[in-house]
């Protein structure tokens, strides 16, 4: 196996971490939608907090992406 092939495989593996972020964002969104359904008056606050939560969850996926990019283009 040459180094290039290993890089590609490594980048692909690094992106596995996005699974967690996807599941997390789904849970956040489902909770937020339920909350909005129960209490439509609080939609604004819930939306803000939902976006914050999504950003935190998404950060994990972004780290994976950064690692993948580093593997592909930097090393």
């Amino acid at each position: 196996m040459d180094a290039n092939a290993a890089k590609l495989i490594g980048a692909g593996l690094a992106m596995i971490g996005a699974i967690g972020a996807g599941a997390g964002i789904g849970i956040v969104a489902s909770g937020a939608v339920q909350a909005m359904g129960r209490n439509p008056d609080a939609t604004g606050t819930i939306q803000t907090n939902m976006i914050l939560g999504i950003a935190f969850a998404e950060a994990v996926a972004i780290y994976c992406l950064v690692v993948a990019l580093l593997i592909l283009f930097v090393f």
Binding site: A55, A59, I62, Y63, L65, V66, L69
Partner: peptide, 16 residues
Amino acid sequence: LSFAFRLFGNIFAGSV
């Protein structure tokens, strides 16, 4: 790190 890489990663990934 998280501040820097969250923004960088999102936008860089977007442009890619």
